[in-house]
Amino acid sequence: MDRKEIEILELLEKNGRMDVHTIARMVELSPEEVERAIQKFEDQQIIHGYSTLIDWTDVLGYEGVTAMIDVKVTPVRGKGFNDVAERIYRFPEVKAVYLMSGAYDLSVSVEGKTMSQVARFVSEKLSTLDTVISTTTHFILKKYKHDGIIFGEDDDNDRRMPVSP
């Protein structure tokens, strides 16, 4: 992969809605070359999708709950953690699963409408899997920054540090 392709990916990672013509000007390629590169990334599943980050706390009073669950598991012989992770990520409540180093094997991100709903998921679905040894649930109380976006910050407010000689 060449430097121009990496630049295209970096721009799309920051803003998936960026216009092809704008990207082309920024990386000094034609719009057609950029379109071909993006199509190649999608075909090769380098780009897995495009998403919008919404602060739901300000929309219709929605107060959903997100929890990060540390999970210790017994890996499956010959398959490692992959089968266990797949069983877990297939639950609709699960938004992300990561293999981790340290005291726990997997980190699982779960969303629900209430803390009770998340607790029921852990006690009735996750903990009952035969390969799960233990879990520790951490509820997210407030988001300050997610995917590089700072929540609650006024975009018009100039946050640059003053520089003096």
Rank of each mutant, 00 (worst) to 15 (best):
R90T: 09
S116W: 06
Y144C: 02
L12S: 04
G78H: 06
R90D: 05
W56H: 03
R160A: 06
R160V: 00
L141K: 02
W56I: 04
E35I: 03
T136C: 08
I54Y: 05
R25Q: 06
E33R: 14
K14N: 09
G80C: 03
S116L: 08
K143R: 10
M68L: 10
G61D: 13
V27Y: 00
G64R: 06
L106D: 09
A96D: 10
K143N: 11
D147F: 07
S109C: 06
A37E: 14
M68N: 11
E28K: 09
M18Q: 12
E32N: 05
R17I: 02
T128I: 13
D70L: 13
S116T: 14
P31Q: 03
K145C: 08
I8A: 01
L99H: 09
A37S: 15
H21T: 05
I133K: 15
I23T: 07
Y62H: 08
T57V: 08
P75Q: 05
S30I: 01
Q39L: 14
F41R: 14
D43Y: 12
F139G: 03
V97I: 11
E5L: 05
S30Y: 03
E63N: 10
L9W: 04
D105C: 09
P162E: 12
R36Q: 10
D83P: 00
Y50C: 03
P92A: 07
I47P: 00
D156N: 07
V118K: 06
E35S: 13
S134T: 10
V108I: 13
F139S: 02
A67L: 04
V132T: 11
A67Q: 05
V132N: 11
D83L: 09
R87P: 00
F81W: 01
L60N: 13
A119V: 07
A96P: 00
F121G: 03
I47W: 08
S127T: 14
V27S: 01
M68Q: 05
V27P: 00
F151R: 15
A67H: 07
Y144K: 07
E7H: 04
E93M: 09
L60C: 09
I38S: 07
N82H: 08
D58W: 10
D147W: 01
E124S: 10
D70H: 11
A24C: 06
N15R: 13
V65M: 11
E42N: 05
F151W: 08
H146V: 13
R159I: 02
E153F: 08
D158C: 03
D58H: 13
G148N: 09
F121R: 04
I69G: 02
N157Y: 02
